[in-house]
Design a protein around this nucleic acid. Sequence first.
DNA 1: CAAACCTGTAACTATAATAGTTACAACAGG
DNA 2: CCTGTTGTAACTATTATAGTTACAGGTTTG
Lengths: 137, 137
Amino acid sequence: MVNSRFSVAIHILSLIATTSDKNQLTSEYIAGSVNTNPVVVRRMIGVLKKAGLLTSQTGIPGYDLLVEPKDLTLLAIYHAIDGPEQLFAIHDEPNPACSVGQKIQRTLEGVYTSVWHAMEEQLQAQTLQDVLDQLRK
Amino acid sequence: MVNSRFSVAIHILSLIATTSDKNQLTSEYIAGSVNTNPVVVRRMIGVLKKAGLLTSQTGIPGYDLLVEPKDLTLLAIYHAIDGPEQLFAIHDEPNPACSVGQKIQRTLEGVYTSVWHAMEEQLQAQTLQDVLDQLRK
DNA sequence: CAAACCTGTAACTATAATAGTTACAACAGG
DNA sequence: CCTGTTGTAACTATTATAGTTACAGGTTTG
């Protein structure tokens, strides 16, 4: 299983999108909702900021989305947090003297790429707005 | 990224399917092709054996597949090695007092399930025989 | 301007998953 | 009986992730 960074990023972005009171929207408040440490939140927000998804200012509470929720796909969020581009690792340096070892890496790459594309399609099809709609239900 | 156990399992099964000389097919030989330790190979083979994919006997070199490569889907192999049933972790215990924290887990489960199914379909569509064909090319 | 509060980061620690290694019991076959 | 093999347990090493402490620097407000 991949880490929970993706889940935390979506949680944070959902809070920013739905919280109107800026003074309430501190890293400590967000951490309280996510159930983690404020530094973990600020660290993650730093990543999302670098990716151009939101903005903030040192010393001033609150964050602003730079992309409309309906235009923000989950795939874009995934890329923002620099999630791994492959789901499965391929073992290093199989024996090139063996007919299987020689070609297994390229073969597995093909298999895993097809799996990866299927996953990308699903993430591309859903936006932050879809998540917000689910949360409101 | 998930671990390389899946890749190693496919590599091992490919070797068993294509190596006719049983006396050659020792855990040490397989380890040489995979580039790992013989114990890692025997450990993985133990898992595949428990799942009913192959058979072997203590003291006697060689392994036998119990399923025809054309009938062995990559998904079955994935299940055999007890791969994780979800790709992304969901953070623990978000704050139930917060409207987002209260529903985020269920919402993310829905998102991740759709991604998971897409992945399963891809793995179901490919068999060990497909891998063997790729290796032969 | 001083105190209180915030963001941004670096650095360290804790935990867990994975892989690699050593060791040895049990079995087979010459 | 000796050599080689499988099957496992137990330990170590490595790495990724998350959590924590500490502090620099900006903002706001009395």
